[in-house]
């Protein structure tokens, strides 16, 4: 039933999440919100890399566009929260459209390097123009949760509800897009762009479209990320964020949306694991500073060496092989 009616599955999962959010403590709720945000951001990379064959190492920059757009519209026009999210999506999608125009003409390593240069370059703009608030950045306050939810409804729970609702809707929507004409076109372009062109697919336009949609999702993730930390600043979107997201996408498996949770949960779990290890063994500050990086990069290298298509795809391939026998 769930296979046929994914909406029921998504709704059930959402209900479970909401029930869970009442059971666990504040920290877990906050981490849950972060997982939901990473799910959106990683899905946007999977859409771009896995479904249209373009690599972006600069998704942090697109998240930053979303975050700043949301904060600016909130601070200057007093836009309602839902509208700031829409503006974030539109602004990032516009940025992604222009980047996509350039990207459609680039391939593989060229695109990776270009997006990387963007991720390093974009934050410096924030320091150049006073409207972006320099190093300190801008406040982004979505306000307290509505009173109708009760007095003991905490701020973090409010963040979690917004973020996970956004994630559920995004993934459901993305899943449908992937199974639509556009998704098939993207897959065709990824598989072999010459063949796709011969089959009547406009390769350039499809690549730009994929970049635009991906950037829009990244913008949403950026606005949500800004929401959970109440500010946007260049420091909130460091190069490390772009790398983590790329890592998350690879761990999830870039060719399928099915594993998107794996990468998101791993990204949130690693600092938690490091904290536990450090406090258990009373390790030094050096270990605390460098262990997360070590774990992430080791995982990344091992994944590309042994399960380059991601764990979900790997299991499916093995399953199919067994079924054939």
């Amino acid at each position: 039933m769930l296979k046929k009616h994914p909406l029921i599955g998504f709704t059930l999962f959402g209900v479970v999440l909401f029930l869970l959010s009442n059971r666990v403590d504040e920290l877990r709720v906050f981490q849950g919100a972060t997982v939901a945000i990473y799910v959106i951001a990683i899905a946007s990379i999977i859409l771009l890399t896995g479904y249209s064959g373009q690599v972006s190492l600069g998704h942090g920059a697109l998240l930053a566009i979303g975050g700043y757009a949301a904060a600016l519209s909130r601070n200057h026009w007093g836009a309602p929260v839902w509208l700031t999210f829409c503006i974030a999506v539109l602004a990032a999608a516009l940025g992604g459209y222009f980047l996509g125009l350039a990207a459609a003409r680039l391939s593989g390593p060229y695109l990776a390097g270009t997006t990387l240069a963007l991720a390093i370059g974009l934050p410096s703009i924030a320091n150049q123009f006073p409207i972006f608030g320099g190093e300190q950045g801008l406040l982004y306050d979505i306000g307290a949760p509505p009173a109708s939810l009760g007095a003991d409804f905490t701020q973090y729970k409010w963040y979690f509800w917004i973020a996970s609702l956004a994630a559920l809707i995004s993934i459901y929507w993305l899943r449908n897009v992937m199974n639509s004409r556009y998704g098939r076109n993207w897959k065709a372009v990824r598989g072999n762009d010459v063949a796709a062109e011969l089959a009547g697919i406009n390769v350039g336009r499809n690549k730009v479209l994929a970049f635009t949609v991906s950037a829009g999702l990244a913008g949403l993730a950026g606005a949500l990320l800004a929401m959970t930390i109440s500010t946007v600043s260049p420091g909130a979107f460091p190069l490390a964020l772009s790398f983590s997201l790329a890592t998350g996408a690879v761990l999830s498996g870039v060719t399928t949306l099915g594993g998107v949770m794996i990468g998101a949960v791993t990204l949130v779990a690693i600092p938690e694991i490091v904290d536990t290890v450090v406090s258990r063994f009373e390790s030094s500050e050096t270990v605390a500073n460098n262990l997360p990086g070590l774990l992430v990069s080791t995982l990344l290298i091992l994944t590309v060496l042994f399960v380059p298509n991601g764990p979900v795809e790997q299991m499916r391939a093995r399953h199919e092989k067994r079924a054939k026998r």
Partner: peptide
């Protein structure tokens, strides 16, 4: 071959970058 063949070296060298940085930190 396969859809990820093009991105695997990019990701691997990025992983290596992170690994080297962490080792230097240690």
């Amino acid at each position: 071959s396969g859809p990820v063949a093009g991105i695997v070296p990019i990701i691997a060298t990025l992983g290596l970058l992170g690994f080297i940085r962490a080792m230097i930190g240690f």
